[in-house]
Amino acid sequence: MKRFDGIKNVMMHIEDEIVICNIGFPSRELYQIKDRDSNFYMLGSMGLASSIGLGLAMSQNKKVIVFDGDGSILMNLGSLVTIFSQNPKNLILIVFDNCCYGSTGNQCTYTQNVDLLEIAKSIGFKNSYNYDNINFKDILSTKQEDSVFIHYKILPGNADSPIIDLTPEQIKNRFMNAIK
């Protein structure tokens, strides 16, 4: 399964949750699949979607879903420790792992040899799962006692998704209005 289909699988369960999406192609794919005012599309700042999601989860009552990639998580592994330490009960971090930096040319990442799920478990995430082994709708609808880490193994490759036709200011403004 490619990331586009993985995002589609998750988004069919999303209703009023806040969604933060990793840079580049993942944001373009989410925009094509299900554009919503309460989606925040990263257009830069690789590695910071999880940190932005953490801040929002700590300031919001709604569930916050973060779509991140293996390359971005590797770039900012400290975010996993911080998320675990702050432990917002309304944060679900989904890491799409295609073993490559998909938005910068498909260079290999070290997740070919390193298991991000095991890293999350070793940090202490009690709710850490492989996407294929869970019912995401149940996780989304259940009140969690801890943050959730979901590892979603996917195939490399990007969908032929169009460029997002919103300016960064438009994305920010409509997002901020949606989460008030």
Score class of each variant (00 low, 15 high):
residue 164 I to P: 01
residue 149 F to P: 01
residue 153 K to A: 01
residue 122 S to R: 15
residue 152 Y to H: 12
residue 140 L to G: 08
residue 125 F to P: 02
residue 30 L to I: 07
residue 91 L to S: 04
residue 160 D to Q: 15
residue 125 F to N: 02
residue 109 T to P: 05
residue 147 S to P: 01
residue 56 L to D: 05
residue 145 E to I: 13
residue 51 S to T: 15
residue 154 I to N: 11
residue 37 D to Q: 14
residue 164 I to F: 11
residue 136 F to H: 03
residue 126 K to N: 09
residue 143 K to S: 12
residue 37 D to I: 04
residue 124 G to T: 15
residue 66 V to Y: 09
residue 40 F to K: 10
residue 132 D to H: 12
residue 74 L to C: 00
residue 40 F to H: 12
residue 102 G to I: 13
residue 139 I to D: 03
residue 175 F to S: 02
residue 178 A to I: 04
residue 128 S to E: 06
residue 80 L to T: 06
residue 52 I to P: 01
residue 136 F to K: 08
residue 145 E to V: 11
residue 25 F to M: 14
residue 106 N to G: 05
residue 76 N to R: 09
residue 116 L to G: 00
residue 24 G to A: 09
residue 91 L to K: 07
residue 16 D to K: 15
residue 28 R to N: 04
residue 141 S to C: 06
residue 18 I to G: 01
residue 14 I to M: 00
residue 134 I to L: 07
residue 130 N to Y: 12
residue 103 S to E: 04
residue 150 I to S: 04
residue 106 N to Y: 12
residue 69 G to Y: 09
residue 118 E to S: 10
residue 139 I to L: 15
residue 175 F to N: 06
residue 44 G to A: 11
residue 76 N to E: 03
residue 139 I to V: 13
residue 148 V to N: 04
residue 13 H to P: 00
residue 158 N to I: 14
residue 55 G to Y: 13
residue 122 S to V: 15
residue 143 K to V: 14
residue 106 N to W: 11
residue 84 F to I: 07
residue 180 K to P: 00
residue 148 V to A: 01
residue 83 I to L: 09
residue 135 N to W: 03
residue 120 A to I: 14
residue 19 V to W: 00
residue 31 Y to N: 08
residue 4 F to D: 02
residue 46 M to N: 09
residue 64 V to F: 09
residue 20 I to S: 00
residue 37 D to A: 13
residue 6 G to C: 05
residue 64 V to P: 02
residue 28 R to C: 11
residue 69 G to L: 10
residue 54 L to E: 02
residue 88 P to D: 02
residue 155 L to Y: 14
residue 39 N to S: 13
residue 1 M to Q: 05
residue 42 M to G: 02
residue 41 Y to N: 02
residue 55 G to K: 14
residue 130 N to E: 06
residue 107 Q to G: 02
residue 159 A to F: 06
residue 86 Q to F: 06
residue 52 I to T: 08
residue 27 S to L: 07
residue 48 L to Y: 13
residue 101 Y to D: 02
residue 127 N to L: 00
residue 114 V to R: 03
residue 114 V to W: 10
residue 66 V to C: 07
residue 74 L to P: 00
residue 58 M to W: 02
residue 133 N to D: 09
residue 16 D to N: 15
residue 129 Y to N: 11
residue 145 E to C: 07
residue 74 L to K: 10
residue 116 L to W: 06
residue 128 S to Y: 06
residue 134 I to P: 04
residue 173 N to C: 08
residue 40 F to R: 10
residue 175 F to E: 02
residue 164 I to C: 01
residue 72 S to C: 12
residue 165 D to P: 10
residue 72 S to L: 03
residue 119 I to N: 03
residue 127 N to P: 01
residue 137 K to W: 05
residue 54 L to S: 03
residue 149 F to D: 00
residue 170 Q to I: 13
residue 23 I to W: 08
residue 71 G to L: 03
residue 125 F to M: 04
residue 2 K to N: 07
residue 48 L to Q: 11
residue 99 C to L: 10
residue 84 F to C: 11
residue 116 L to P: 01
residue 42 M to Q: 10
residue 159 A to R: 09
residue 168 P to V: 12
residue 119 I to F: 01
